[in-house]
Amino acid sequence: MPETTPVVAEDPEALADFTARVRAGEQIEAGEWMPEEYRFEALRLINMHANSEIMGALPEREWIPRAPSLARKMALTAKVQDEVGHGMLLYRVAETLGRSRDEMIAELVAGRARFHNVFHYPAETWADVAIIQVFVDGAAMQTQGALRSCSYAPYSRVLKRICYEEDFHIQLGLDVWRALAEGTPRQRAMLQDALCRWWTPIMHFFGMPDRVSPHTEKMLAWRIKVKSNEELRQQFLRKFVPIILEYGLDVPDPNLRWVEDEQRYVYTEPDWEELRRVGRNGGPKSAERLALRQRFHAQHAWVREAMSRWRAARADGAVA
């Protein structure tokens, strides 16, 4: 999909009406008139969210075969299943904005689409499962929780279910986290190590502090964006730093501290260049994970073909 916003001359009356409705807190349904730029931005956001769920299944699924108890194995399978299911729901929403799922998946598999930065990193030990479930899902929960009040109704509806399930993931993750944090010294060390490795990607997760630009203003006015990147990052830190401290683990940033006067955390500025690189599918695991997706996509080409022939035969009434 093109990276730049389309320039379309919109009907000024329709545009004004649309903007007024959105400003008044109304939501837009699938199939209603919307400015091309709105469609483009909403689609870009939702398509990337869908991609991220599908790619986000990969780091954790590596630990399904190795989960250390039957209960953990079932719960982790169910958790990854939810992520895949979110992908399904989100691609459906994206489809209402004009792209087919097949097209979006083909683009993702070909490495031409983007997905969230955190899913470009390795999941090296069992403790990574805890970090992903608590902190990555916790971070996602801030963004998605805010977007429940976005202006596109089908997205907003689906986010309600997604957030409900993400909450289960965080609880599940906290249970794994607790077992490790209160476990043997080796288990604790594993957890601390995973936390250190994931800290930067998680700080990156919310993106760079927003520039004050007409584009950001418009996204906020149209409620395709609901809170600023920095607001979401602060919201996340307020909820999740206490969990680290409660279990006596070290926050991986020595400069992180709460500033009472400003009611915010200050932290070491992460390397934003790394985020840009990772975002362009240049992360440590981007190529490997895309190659895996490609392998299965190619392996299943005949299955997809078989299903579409079956569908066509049914539609013709050729198969009873």
Partner: peptide, 22 residues
């Protein structure tokens, strides 16, 4: 509850069960 991609109604029912009633 929602929708699924499926080649026919029978498969749609099978898939809808796990996608929407877990």
């Amino acid at each position: 509850a929602g929708d699924v991609h499926a080649p026919d109604a029978e498969m749609a029912l099978v898939l809808a069960k796990e996608n929407y009633t877990r």
